[in-house]
Simulated assay, not measured.
Amino acid sequence: MDPLMLKIAFCDDETQETRRLEALLEEYAADRGQDFAHTSYQSPVELMAEVEKGTRFDIILLDVLMPGENGMAAAREIREYDSNVKIIFLTSSTEFAVESYAVDAWYYQLKPIRKEDFFRLMDSACAACTREQKHSLILRSKSGIVRLELEELVYCEVMGRTLTFHLNNGVVLESMGRLDDLCDQLVEYPNFLRPHRSFLINMEYIANIAARSITMQDGAVVPLPHGKYSETKDRYLSYIFDRKQVVM
Rank of each mutant, 00 (worst) to 15 (best):
M1S: 15
M5H: 07
A9D: 10
C11H: 02
E14Y: 07
E17V: 09
T18C: 10
A23L: 08
L24N: 02
Y28M: 06
D35M: 13
A37K: 12
Y41G: 03
P44L: 06
E46G: 06
R56S: 14
R56D: 10
I60T: 10
G68W: 04
E77P: 00
R79V: 08
R79D: 05
D82W: 04
S83K: 02
N84V: 13
E95H: 14
A97Y: 07
D104E: 12
Y107D: 10
Q109S: 13
R114G: 15
D117I: 05
F119C: 03
L121T: 06
L121D: 05
A128G: 11
A128Q: 14
C129M: 03
E132W: 14
Q133G: 07
I138A: 14
K142R: 13
R147F: 15
E149N: 13
L150R: 00
C156V: 15
M159K: 01
M159L: 11
G160E: 02
T164V: 05
T164L: 10
H166R: 04
N168I: 00
N168M: 03
V172Q: 08
M176G: 15
C183W: 07
C183Y: 11
D184E: 15
D184A: 15
L186S: 12
N191V: 04
N191E: 07
L200F: 09
I201L: 09
M203V: 00
N208Y: 10
I209M: 06
A210L: 10
R212T: 14
Q217M: 11
L224M: 07
P225L: 06
G227A: 09
K228Q: 07
Y229D: 11
T232K: 02
L237G: 09
L237R: 12
S238A: 12
R243L: 03
Q245M: 11
V246W: 08
V247C: 11
